[in-house]
Simulated scan of single mutants.
Amino acid sequence: MRVWAVANQKGGVGKTTTSIALAGLLADAGKRVLLVDLDPHGSMTSYFGHDPDALEHSCFDLFLDHGQVAEGLPASLLLPTSHERMALLPSSTALATLERQSPGQSGLGLVIAKSLAQLWQQYDFAIIDSPPLLGVLMVNALAACQQLVIPVQTEFLAVKGLERMVSTLQMINRSRKQALPYSIVPTLFDRRTQASLQTLRTLRNAYPEHLWPAYIPVDTRLRDASRAGQTPSQFDAKSRGVIAYRALLKHLLSQQGVTQVA
């Protein structure tokens, strides 16, 4: 299993859309994909028609036993999505209480890594949607993944959020055996606005080694896909957004030495 996390310490940058779009394209290519929703807001969970306020069981269950994950528990929590080759480990609003519970509890930072270890042979890829703040949930996402994707909205304030995210990553890397590779992905790009153009130039100057050279454009078809509860490629495989995400997927796979997914 290859594990990717999608994270940024600023909300509204396209994390959930990016996670689902990449997962959908991988599933279209025949891969078995696990989506992990670690955001207490549950946007990914809601995307596929599940109510994070009403779910009896969710990712929260994984954190209940002092960092230990009972055998078989992760598999029992899985929910269906719009794609037969994609499953969802759902979020719930109860995850928001973890920050208050985590002080003094050791081992909580590795809960998701332990959970994915139980599902390692069942899926080819796992994609984790992380909350937009540094805490036990983001630490879990970063500890579990082999590749980090950082979506950055092409507007001025988003660059500040990226700076915080890179600082967090540097801190995490000090506790890892190997530095976590990451790709910065410009999102919500609108070439008609100076803000988008200037921000893209800023990103290219400041992060030349880690920036994906292209961008995800503003595309209403992505929003329409979320309303329909389908992956973007299921909803409109020829939309501008899907074409861009397909190029991003190719880039991410090439970084890991994979030339194709089919």
Rank of each mutant, 00 (worst) to 15 (best):
Y215N: 02
F60Y: 15
D39W: 00
L200R: 03
N205E: 15
L148V: 02
L26W: 06
L22K: 01
S175W: 12
H57T: 15
E163W: 04
K31F: 07
L35N: 04
I150G: 00
P217D: 09
S175I: 09
Y47D: 02
A214P: 06
Q170P: 06
L25S: 00
D53K: 15
V36C: 09
P232L: 14
M1P: 09
L38F: 04
L35E: 01
S175Y: 13
D39M: 07
L211R: 05
L25K: 00
G109M: 11
L116A: 11
I172Y: 11
A237C: 15
A195H: 14
M1N: 12
F156T: 14
A27F: 00
T93G: 13
L79N: 05
N8Q: 10
L134D: 09
P213D: 06
A141H: 05
H251W: 11
I172P: 01
Q101F: 13
D37S: 03
H41E: 07
L88G: 03
R223Y: 10
D124F: 06
E209Q: 13
G161L: 02
S91I: 02
L148P: 00
P80V: 10
G67W: 11
K15I: 00
Q230G: 13
A27Y: 07
T259N: 08
L169R: 00
D219A: 12
L110R: 15
Q68G: 12
W4T: 03
A7E: 03
L108M: 14
T199H: 01
H57A: 15
L248C: 10
V258D: 09
L253D: 09
A5E: 03
Q9P: 02
A262L: 11
S102W: 10
V139N: 02
N205F: 10
Q230T: 10
R85S: 13
Q68Y: 12
A27R: 07
S226T: 09
S239P: 05
Q121M: 14
